[in-house]
Amino acid sequence: MTVKVSHTAEVQNLFKEASGLNNEQGSPRLKQLTLRIISDLAKIIEDLEVSDDEFWTAVDYFNRLGGRNEAGLLVAGLGLEHFLDLLQDAKDAQIGLSGGTPRTIEGPLYVAGAPLAEGQVRMDDGSEDGVATVMFLEGVVRDTDGQPVSGAVVDLWHANTLGNYSYFDKSQSDYNLRRRIVTDAEGRYRARSIVPSGYGCSPDGPTQECLDQLGRHGQRPAHIHFFISAPGHRHLTTQINLAGEQYLWDDFAYATRDGLIGDIQFIENAAAARDRGIDGSRFATLEFNFELQKAPAPVAEQRSARPRALQQV
Rank of each mutant, 00 (worst) to 15 (best):
E118S: 10
I95T: 10
A230N: 00
P28C: 06
I45S: 14
N241F: 07
A71N: 08
E10V: 04
C210Y: 08
T104M: 08
D47L: 12
S229Q: 04
T2F: 04
D184P: 11
P28E: 01
V59N: 06
I267M: 10
L248S: 10
N269F: 11
D251G: 12
R234S: 12
H217P: 15
T285F: 14
G151F: 08
G96Y: 05
G218A: 15
Q120A: 12
N269W: 06
S150G: 09
G107L: 03
S281W: 09
F283E: 02
T57K: 15
A117P: 07
Q239W: 07
H217T: 08
D47E: 14
L211T: 02
E291Q: 13
F168Q: 10
V59F: 09
A230R: 02
V134W: 04
L87W: 13
P203R: 10
F288Q: 09
H158A: 12
F83K: 13
G67Y: 09
A270T: 07
A295T: 00
L78V: 09
P203L: 05
K16A: 15
V134Y: 07
P206I: 06
D52W: 13
Q293L: 10
Y61I: 10
S6A: 09
D47W: 12
F226K: 02
E118H: 05
P102C: 02
V299G: 06
R216P: 11
F168H: 01
N23S: 08
G99W: 04
F136I: 01
R308N: 03
A253M: 12
V50F: 06
E118K: 09
A71G: 14
D40V: 14
P28A: 04
A18T: 03
K91F: 15
G130H: 01
R64G: 06
T238R: 04
V11W: 13
P231D: 10
I240P: 00
A112N: 11
V11S: 11
C210L: 15
F136L: 02
L260I: 07
G26A: 08
A305E: 11
Q94N: 15
F283K: 01
T8Y: 05
A284H: 03
G66C: 07
C201H: 11
I278T: 06
R180T: 00
G67Q: 15
V149F: 04
I224H: 01
D251K: 14
S193M: 04
A71L: 14
R303K: 02
T2P: 15
N176T: 09
I194D: 08
G26V: 04
L248I: 03
I38G: 11
A71C: 03
Y175V: 00
H217G: 08
C210E: 12
Q172K: 15
L33Y: 09
S166Q: 01
I37N: 14
H217A: 12
D174I: 09
A297K: 09
